[in-house]
Amino acid sequence: MASNTDVRNYPGFVGITILCLVILYAPLIVVTVYSFNASASITVWEGVSLRWYADVFTGPDSEKFKTAAVNSFSIAIMAATTATVIATCAATAMVRGGRFRGRTLSFGLISLPLMVPEIVTAVATLIFFNAIGFTRGYTTILAAHIAFCIPFAYLPIAARMQGIEGTYEQAAQDLYATKVQAFRYVLLPLMGPGIISGFLLAFIISLDDFIITNFVKGAGVETLPTAIFGSVKQGIKPNIMAISTMLLGVSVVMVTISYFVSKKDNTQ
């Protein structure tokens, strides 16, 4: 079975694979390992300790990080929820709306933000808020996050919807369901995994965002990424590694859930 076309038989396969994995994960592993360092230095290893994790929750910076974490998570939840609702509506219209005028254009408009350099979006959003006279703060961060989360939520939802045959809704309508009932009892449950995937992706994107947040946040309002950046500017302390490791953990959990949910295909 090990045919010539098997990629494992290509010369250098093992070497290149290992190189890629090292480049991708070595920094993360270093940060994770050193977050358990007992030393106050970020380079000298002195033994295993949870000292810096305790420092995050009780140390001098704990109040700052706690506020930032509350902001980050509350914004991520609200932004992801709103973006998911909007993306679900958009996907329904795009996939189930037949061929309407401007369909291709609409699809482009929805996915374009994924291609636009984030710094451009950040500057544009900032200028927009200034132009309409919004005071920068929590609300502006939330609004910006909702906006840039929509395409991320849209993609898994639309992909899922494309896999659902139109005959299910036809069958539902044939069996006396109104259009609303057909959506509620048949289409929505089938879209469920896509919607959850979209939500989790949007949540992660919002939680991780730095550039746009940094531009539109007001003075004094911090999210975790901006708070970490602020601390790092004053020199890297091991507690930053502990926070980063925890944030990494949250991301890994979310991505894992998203993966398993999207694999749970209930259309077959």
């Binding site: 045959e165 005959t167 299910y168 069958a171 539902a172 069996l175 077959q268």
Partner: peptide, 14 residues
């Protein structure tokens, strides 16, 4: 008051 048996059955998978 007319029902259809579809070619691919269209049973609701969930």
């Amino acid at each position: 008051p007319v029902n259809t048996v579809f070619q691919n059955y269209a049973l609701f998978p969930h």
